[in-house]
């Protein structure tokens, strides 16, 4: 257990090593929130509307989506796994008494903690400044549910990007493949537009996939757009479990293939 804590700690330190980045990042995050607000504000002020969303609802939606994007995504996991497979670094991980899945998860946790240290002040400032535009959860314990859902979302997110990264065992040009995955996943998790504004057939399709639980569902709960249901806990949990086994299975198969060329 101590070894995974050490990985988390090293991961945080590694990100901290780039201090110049930090300041610029914080400014740009503030900026992107600002752009978001003014953009949607001006759209609505001109009398336009996005589906059934009020101004507050749409602003709340994108604010929380951006928060998720900043704090809870592990896309870097996919890239770093891809790199390690391509340049053979993963061989070192095979030889160490540490699970690869668990190792990358700890690294990812380190990145998340680092991002939280960085962005929570900025986010708190933004939430305060825009407090009049933010909508509330429908439920009494809405914020608590939100935290639990976010936690699940983070884990699910990690497993999905782990699987994307593992695909590098088979896909040679993983840049193209990764980008495609990233684009599809970010769309299907509601990053670009609220999923409930999409055509019905698309929404039905999305119900059979895990992606909406990554962003859309938790954001829906905290912004009051949807009421909390227990299925929102159970379904992503089931996805986590089944994808976890898929991840382990694919890793085993991938290592077998890796032996054939990359080692």
């Amino acid at each position: 257990m101590g070894k995974y804590l050490a990985v988390i700690s090293n991961s945080i330190k590694k990100n901290l090593a780039y201090r110049a980045n930090t300041f610029i990042l914080m400014i740009s995050v503030l900026f992107s929130f600002g752009v978001l607000f003014y953009f949607w504000n001006s759209i609505y002020m001109q009398g336009n509307k996005v589906g059934t969303y009020t101004l507050s609802e749409i602003i709340s939606y994108y604010i929380f989506i951006t928060i998720f994007e900043l704090l809870f995504t592990s896309t870097n996991t996919a890239w770093s796994i891809g790199d390690e497979i391509r340049n053979g670094q993963i061989t070192n991980s095979i030889l160490k008494p540490m699970g690869y899945f668990e190792y990358k998860f700890s690294q990812s946790l380190g990145v998340i903690f680092y991002r939280m240290m960085l962005f929570v002040p900025v986010i708190a400032l933004v939430l305060f400044l825009l407090r009049n535009y933010l909508t509330q959860p429908k439920d009494d314990y809405g914020y608590l549910f939100f935290i639990i859902l976010s936690f699940l979302a983070f884990i699910l997110n990690y497993i999905i990007y782990y699987i994307v990264g593992i695909s590098s065992f088979w896909v040679v040009d993983n840049n193209g493949f990764f980008f495609t995955c990233l684009v599809v996943i970010s769309f299907m998790q509601g990053q670009w537009m609220p999923l409930d504004l999409l055509p019905t057939w698309f929404v039905t399709l999305g119900n059979y996939l895990p992606f909406k639980y990554l962003f859309f569902v938790p954001v829906g709960v905290v912004s009051g757009r949807s009421a909390f249901e227990y299925s929102m806990l159970i379904i992503p949990l089931l996805w986590c479990v089944s994808l976890y086994f898929l991840a382990k299975f694919l890793y085993k198969k991938g290592i077998k293939k890796y032996e054939g060329y990359g080692v």
């Binding site: 330190k13 780039y18 053979g88 061989t91």
Partner: peptide, 8 residues
């Protein structure tokens, strides 16, 4: 193939 973390 290095095992040391590059940035640390």
């Amino acid at each position: 193939k290095m095992q040391l973390w590059w940035d640390l």
